[in-house]
């Protein structure tokens, strides 16, 4: 009986010498900085309205058709993202002018709205909340009147994409 007990204990201790080492652990911390960022791209940098008879074409559509706008923004959670456009001046041809407000647009796509060009206040083209990539269109129209002096008129539009 004593011998049996000794063998049993030795076996237990021998097994204890092979006890699994377990595990060794080490922590690390992941940090990621995400800064605010915005990028806007347009499918066309120029718009052209062809000459037309005011009686038959009272509203002239831009020859480029709808321009596509891609607005990418990183902002705070649910932060406002706004796309606006502002005309630099009236349509001008030498000394002759046509009010920029004679240019209007129809917006297409989520967040895009219709509007009228202005030289004094940036007009909202589209608005969203939160980060992401949004795409939409603007179809421009020019109000065609007999009162305009002949000429080639130009103006510059400035788009601004802002993220709160």
């Amino acid at each position: 009986m004593r011998l049996t007990l000794s063998v049993l204990l030795f076996a237990l201790v021998f097994a204890a010498g092979r006890v699994p080492a377990g595990a060794q652990t080490s922590n690390a911390t992941l940090n990621a900085s995400i800064n605010g960022l915005a990028r806007l791209s347009l499918s066309s940098a120029a718009l052209t309205f062809p000459d037309a008879d005011p009686d038959t074409v009272p509203s002239i559509q831009a020859t480029q058709g709808p321009i596509t706008l891609s607005a990418k923004a990183r902002t705070s959670p649910n932060g406002a993202v706004t796309l606006t456009v502002l005309a630099s001046d009236q349509l001008r041809s030498g000394l002759n002018t046509i009010p920029a407000s004679n240019i209007t647009w129809v917006g297409g796509g989520a967040g895009f709205v219709n509007g009228t060009l202005s030289t004094t206040a940036a007009q909202v083209v589209a608005g969203w909340n939160g980060s992401g990539v949004r795409t939409g269109t603007q179809m421009f129209f020019f109000r065609n009147l007999w009162s305009y002096a002949t000429g080639t008129y130009t103006l510059t539009m400035t788009y601004t994409l802002s993220a709160a």
Binding site: G22, S76, G79
Partner: peptide, 18 residues
């Protein structure tokens, strides 16, 4: 682009085991 701006953090645990 879909990430909200901010400083993100998390802990990861390495375990060496036999």
């Amino acid at each position: 682009w879909t990430y909200s701006s901010g400083t993100y953090t998390q802990t990861i645990l390495f375990t060496l085991s036999a």
